[in-house]
């Protein structure tokens, strides 16, 4: 197992380097360059001054030298400073947003798993019942619903028409003056809609997966054996079926890791939540390259790590899948 883990990690290194290389080339090939993009410089800088700037930032060097230097800085987690007027270190900007996005997404994951698994079990054990059919419908609709639209609908219903819940931000303006419990409620009430929307798509997907997985397990011989030896149906389903069926669903956690930090672009934009997704959109708009590149690096690394984790955890939870030398793609 350990050997496999190490091997996977080693394979990931060239992949990550490839992604970084591609990102860097993408950045360099894009029309315009930083010394021209910055508005105030464009207005006033003379040719000589611009040349000084180019030398300062190393833009006059060949592209592979620039890439090498950039890589060396990234390796030391130095992502430089943001191009935005505040000019803060990229890492600081990201660090203050991570807890928000992470907290939101962990809550979301807990809700998805605790609701989707029972739903999947229910529709698998009652295959082709009315409940199962309406779940199938829900899944199809869930796949086709843009989450930002669902967000708008809920905002209109609960925020505007009924006036029950706030529709943007994380806390009210008078947050500081509220009592402790009122503060908790204030935060919660701001979180209800975003989490509801964020869970929706995942819920549809995961409950479908759980259903399929359980249906497959139920057809296995050991389930027939369990039934044949007279175990109550309850025990058959929950002790023999669900335990095995939940494995592929749990390993999906690994694949959800990159989403934990970056996957909430739409939710954070719609609800004005100051997390990583919002930072990404803002940086995309202002073409804040250092921030964009830092986010791509983080996103790609997490994605690679998540894949490895998913595969490794699959092998750990299910001893039948002992990973051999071959890759199980």
């Amino acid at each position: 197992m350990l050997a496999y883990l190490i091997r996977r990690l080693l394979i990931s290194i060239p992949l990550l380097l490839g992604i970084l290389c591609l990102s860097f080339v993408m950045l360099k090939l894009a029309p315009g360059e930083p010394t021209i993009v910055q508005q105030d410089l464009q207005m006033r800088a003379t040719g000589a001054q611009r040349e000084t700037l180019r030398q300062l930032y190393g833009l006059d060097r060949p592209i592979y030298v620039q890439f090498g230097r950039w890589l060396w800085r990234v390796a030391r987690l130095d992502f430089g400073r943001s191009y935005s007027p505040d000019g803060r270190a990229v890492l600081d900007k990201i660090a203050e947003r991570i807890p928000i996005t992470l907290g939101l997404n962990i809550l979301e994951l807990i809700i998805i798993f605790s609701v989707a698994v029972p739903l999947g079990i229910l529709s698998a054990t009652r295959q082709y019942s009315t409940f199962d059919k309406s779940m199938t419908l829900f899944v199809f609709v869930g796949f086709a619903t843009p989450d930002f639209w669902l967000a708008l609908l809920l905002m209109i219903l609960f925020g505007v028409q009924l006036g029950w819940l706030p529709i943007s931000g994380l806390r009210s303006l008078n947050f500081e003056y509220l009592a402790f419990w009122a503060q908790i409620w204030d935060l919660l009430s701001h979180l209800i809609l975003p989490i509801l929307v964020a869970s929706f798509g995942g819920l549809a997907y995961l409950s479908r997966l759980m259903r399929g997985s359980l249906l497959e397990v139920i057809r296995q011989d050991y389930i027939r054996t369990a039934r044949a030896k007279g175990l109550p149906e309850r025990d058959v389903i929950y002790n023999h079926g669900v335990r095995n069926a939940v494995i592929p669903v749990v390993t999906l956690l690994g694949l959800m890791i990159p989403g934990l930090l970056g996957g909430s672009v739409f939710i954070e934009t719609v609800f004005a939540i100051p997390g990583m997704g919002q930072l990404f959109v803002q940086s995309a708009f202002s073409r804040d390259e250092p921030v964009l590149m830092a986010l791509v690096v983080i996103g790609a690394s997490l994605s690679l790590l998540g894949n490895i984790l998913a595969d490794v955890s699959y092998g750990l939870v299910d001893p039948r899948i002992r990973v051999s030398g071959k890759e199980g793609r």
């Binding site: 992949l15 990102s23 970056g262 672009v265 990404f280």
Partner: peptide
């Protein structure tokens, strides 16, 4: 492994 939305938005 390139998160698609990141790639889309960045490009």
């Amino acid at each position: 492994n390139f998160p698609r939305l990141f790639l889309l938005l960045t490009l």
